[in-house]
């Protein structure tokens, strides 16, 4: 596998989660997107929490290693017993490294920090900056509000990262909490619900675990916004995944992984960015 992306990471995840002993070979990987990076991070944590061995062969590409390192991945998996990530000499184009989200009090500050990092790289229109901040505020606060709504998850490990590409800005938000099914199951009448059913109810119907109608609807609004902007939205929870781009939008079966993982890719033209291409 040469590309770890929203479209390929599930093949890898299947192996990491299910097998008792795993050799994870990333040596030929030449590209990693932020969504795949966060899932890889969480998958390593998942194995570690269960004391399952995982031997990793990191990418041969110095540039990819450098990018992963600059995105904070090496620090994230530091205490993990695998081969160390190779040191790199190149300066990568990493934009916003992996950031932990655990408390609601931190959400506004973190969204502003993400925005600042992006606007330092590009002159952005106020309208697009504010729209992205609104998306971040909603996605980030979902982690402290919902990922451990049962109180039974020791640490849902909320993470976020962002990267720019030649044609788009890519935001990823992920956690290892109770997932959408676990959250909606807290509503009495929805107790026996599948991952697919939960995903549909949240993304297409705007439902939440609260009966109060004011709660919920945020992911549906984000989906509408992403579609309006010809972007890409991926929401993964448990064994189901919603994939929506300009051409298609459907729910798919994927290998189980706990929590909710989200990718939002928006065309750069939405942000009024005409600058030089940047790629990792």
């Amino acid at each position: 596998m040469t590309r770890l992306t929203v479209k390929t990471i599930d093949q890898l995840l299947d192996g990491i989660v299910l097998r008792r002993s795993v050799q994870l070979d990333l040596s030929s990987v030449e590209f990693v997107d932020p969504y795949a990076l966060l899932l890889l991070d969480l998958a390593v944590r998942y194995r570690r929490a269960r004391q399952l061995p995982l031997r990793v062969q990191w990418p041969r590409s110095h540039y990819v290693c450098g990018w992963m390192d600059d995105m904070g991945f090496a620090k994230e998996v530091r205490s993990f017993r695998g081969s160390p990530l190779e040191p790199h000499l190149l300066t990568s184009s990493a934009l916003q490294p992996i950031t932990h989200i655990s408390k609601e009090e931190d959400v506004s500050r973190l969204a502003s920090a993400f925005d600042l990092r992006l606007s330092k790289r590009y002159p952005l229109t106020n309208e697009s900056r504010n729209a992205l901040v609104k998306v971040m505020l909603e996605l980030f606060q979902n982690i402290p509000q919902h990922s451990n709504a049962t109180g039974k998850v020791e640490d849902p490990h909320g993470l976020a990262a962002m990267q720019d590409y030649t044609d788009s800005i890519f935001l990823a938000v992920a956690d290892m909490g109770i997932g959408l099914r676990g959250s909606l199951s807290l509503r009495d009448k929805l107790a026996p619900i599948s991952d697919k059913g939960a995903l549909k109810k949240v993304v297409f119907e705007g439902m939440s675990r609260f009966v109060d109608p004011g709660h919920g609807g945020e992911l549906r609004r984000i989906a509408q916004l992403v579609r309006k902007w010809d972007g890409l939205l991926v929401i993964r929870s448990g064994e189901a995944l919603v994939y929506m781009d300009v051409e298609q939008g459907d729910v798919y079966d994927v290998p189980f992984f706990p929590g909710v993982q989200i990718a939002v890719r928006l065309p750069r033209r939405v942000f009024g960015i005409e600058g030089a291409p940047v790629d990792n």
Binding site: N126, N130, K134, G214, G217, E218
Partner: peptide, 18 residues
């Protein structure tokens, strides 16, 4: 105000109005 998120708007304004 530059950004008024749905969550904030609901808690601050809609619930007060209710």
């Amino acid at each position: 105000i530059e950004v008024l998120s749905g969550s904030f708007a609901d808690e601050a304004v809609a619930l007060s109005y209710a």
